[in-house]
Simulated assay, not measured.
Amino acid sequence: MTGIRPRPPAKDLRRPELDELDERIVGILADDGRITNADLAATLDVAPSTAHARMRSLVDRGVITGFHASVDQELLGRGLQAIVGVTLRPGARHDSIVAFADEVRRLPQVLQLFFIGGSDDFLVHIAVEGASDVRQFVVEHLSAQRYVATTRTSIIFEYHRNAVAAPFR
């Protein structure tokens, strides 16, 4: 996420006002984050300075939080993806939630980590080379943690992404 300034602390929790041009810019950038400013301006039928100022305003207001590369995990030798549901043990919940998230989010196999409500506490989205690597990840990095009670693994057959979600704060 180079070139993106950290989002300032939120003082006003209302949604930022977006006009039609802002919404069009967000849609275009969600489809192609690498579009040049000149091409963005031409698509919007506005001056390049207008496109740049409006895009910069969206970044400054925290609407656009970064620009991301979509990576083909299979070409990196990590063609098997899985979602692992994790339930933590009762007791000292806050500490175990924080510790679990801090440890797991740093692992190179982890693409996404979701702290959720429901029967699981977390969903861990991983990409690895093969089935034995899924097993090894679950056994060594999840089940071995003292605060993990259970895990439930689902293999991903197909993956479709419509947008990149911003991190929760």
Rank of each mutant, 00 (worst) to 15 (best):
R24M: 12
A41V: 01
R161H: 03
R161T: 10
F137Y: 10
H160E: 14
Q109Y: 03
G33R: 01
D19I: 10
G27A: 14
L88H: 06
H94S: 14
L80N: 04
L142D: 02
L142T: 00
E20I: 11
F157E: 02
S119G: 15
D60S: 10
G130K: 10
A165Y: 07
F137R: 01
D102H: 12
T87P: 02
D120N: 10
G118F: 03
V59K: 07
E140V: 02
S96C: 04
R78K: 09
D72H: 09
S96N: 08
V110I: 05
E17C: 11
E74K: 08
V59E: 10
R5S: 14
R61Q: 05
G66W: 03
R93K: 11
V148E: 01
I64T: 04
G117L: 08
P9S: 15
R7I: 09
R135Q: 14
V26W: 06
L21E: 14
Q112G: 12
I97N: 05
T151W: 00
F114H: 09
V86F: 05
V104C: 05
L80M: 14
I4K: 08
P108V: 09
R34V: 08
I25N: 06
Q112T: 07
Q145S: 07
D72G: 05
L40A: 03
H52S: 13
F157I: 05
F157L: 12
I4G: 03
I126K: 04
F157K: 09
T151Q: 00
L29R: 03
I97M: 13
V71E: 07
A131R: 15
D45N: 11
R105W: 02
E103R: 13
V26D: 05
I116D: 00
G62F: 00
R93T: 00
P108W: 05
V59N: 05
P48R: 02
G130L: 06
V110R: 03
G130E: 07
Y159V: 09
S57C: 02
V84G: 01
S96G: 14
D19Y: 10
E103H: 10
R146I: 11
F114I: 06
T65M: 01
H52Y: 14
V59Y: 01
R106H: 13
N162Y: 08
R106S: 10
A163E: 13
P108D: 11
E74A: 15
M55L: 13
L18F: 12
T36M: 10
A144P: 00
E158T: 11
Q136S: 15
S49L: 04
L123R: 06
T151I: 03
F100Q: 01
P6D: 07
M1P: 09
I156W: 04
H125K: 13
E20N: 13
V148N: 02
H141E: 11
R7G: 01
G79Y: 06
D32W: 06
R24H: 15
T43L: 15
T65V: 12
D12T: 09
S70K: 14
L113K: 05
D133Q: 07
G91I: 00
L142V: 02
D60H: 08
